[in-house]
Structure formats: structure tokens, C-alpha cells
């Protein structure tokens, strides 16, 4: 029983318990990690073209407001997120558009065009952006974001490319 190379009964139990416990730990631990972080690994919605309005309705030099919602599936629920912005037509050329995202670059409130102030005003921390989106006043770190991918459809609609999420 107690030969020097032989495992004692107690040591055998210890080693087996350790190994079996370790295996169970790994077999359940790894899937559990995957289970916990799974939502972070999910793809958002798809990239799509969204129509924001008729080109002919946009007047040169006056920001044209638009908004759209996109539905995102979160878990067992659908969440709709609103997006919006202003299209600024500069000439007759449909390529000559500046399409701004109205999401403030500070902390994501929605900015509004003010005719009076001739700028975009943010209600949250009093930021002011120029008609071209540059920061004139307040805390935002960078100009308003620009939708650079847009196109004119055959029906005269302007569509912008909206990325997932």
C-alpha cells in the first residue's frame, strides 16, 4: 500500500478531484464567458440607403431638415432610434450638397437650426455651430458630422447612406 512510488488513496482522491473539477470548470466556464459577452458581439442592423427628401424641395442656402428612424433588434425587443440632420443645398448641382448630422458632437443632444442665430444651437450646453457645421461656441470638440455618401435617385429623391446601428 505505501510503496514510495505509489499514490496514497488520499492523494489519488486529491489529484482526481483537482482534474475533474478543473475539467468541469473549463467545460462550463468558457461557454459562460461567451454567454455573458454575447450581446457585445452581435452585429447591429444593416447598412441601407435612406431617403431624406426631394432635391427640388431643398432651397439653395437654407438648411432643409430631415429625420428618419431605424429599428434595431436588442435582445427580444426592437428599439427604434431616431436620426436627423439638415441638408444644405448650395447650387443646382445635386452633388453640391452639405448634409449634416444633427447629433451634437459634444454629448449627442440634437441641434436645431435657428434662423435668428443663423446657426445650429444645441439645447444641452449651449453650443453653437455655423451653417457649415463648424463649432462657433460651446464645448463640442469637433464640427458636426457630415453624411458624405449621398445620391440623387431617378425620382428626384436624395438618399443618404446610413451605417448600421
Amino acid at each position: 500500500m505505501s510503496g514510495s512510488n505509489e499514490l496514497s488513496r488520499r492523494d489519488f482522491i486529491k489529484v482526481t478531484t483537482g482534474i475533474v473539477g478543473g475539467l468541469i470548470g473549463v467545460a462550463i466556464g468558457l461557454p459562460t464567458i461567451s454567454y455573458l459577452i454575447d450581446p457585445a458581439l452581435q452585429e447591429g442592423g444593416k447598412d441601407v440607403w435612406v431617403s431624406i427628401g426631394k432635391f427640388e424641395d431643398m432651397q439653395v442656402g437654407i438648411p432643409y431638415p430631415f429625420s428618419f428612424t431605424r429599428v434595431q433588434v436588442n435582445g427580444w425587443e426592437r428599439t427604434s432610434n431616431s436620426f436627423g440632420g439638415y441638408a444644405l443645398r448650395k447650387s443646382d448641382d445635386p452633388k453640391d450638397l452639405l448634409i449634416l448630422n444633427s447629433r451634437c458632437t459634444h454629448l449627442a443632444c440634437t441641434v436645431n437650426w435657428s434662423e435668428e442665430a443663423q446657426g445650429y444651437l444645441c439645447p444641452c450646453h449651449d453650443a453653437k455651430f455655423s451653417i457649415e457645421g463648424e463649432v462657433l461656441d460651446g464645448p463640442p470638440p469637433r464640427p458636426l458630422d457630415v453624411y458624405t455618401d449621398f445620391r440623387l435617385t431617378e425620382d428626384g429623391l436624395i438618399e443618404i447612406f446610413s451605417k448600421a446601428g
Binding site: 462550463i28 461557454p31 459562460t32 461567451s34 454575447d38 435582445g75 427580444w76
Partner: peptide
């Protein structure tokens, strides 16, 4: 939410 655990989440069925 239970349905989601079973079908939506990785290894939800296992847990």
C-alpha cells in the same frame, strides 16, 4: 426573455 436565452444568446441553452 427566456426564449431569447434559449435561442438568441450563445450557450444560453447550456446555462
Amino acid at each position: 426573455s427566456v426564449q431569447y436565452i434559449m435561442e438568441g444568446v450563445a450557450f444560453g441553452w447550456l446555462i
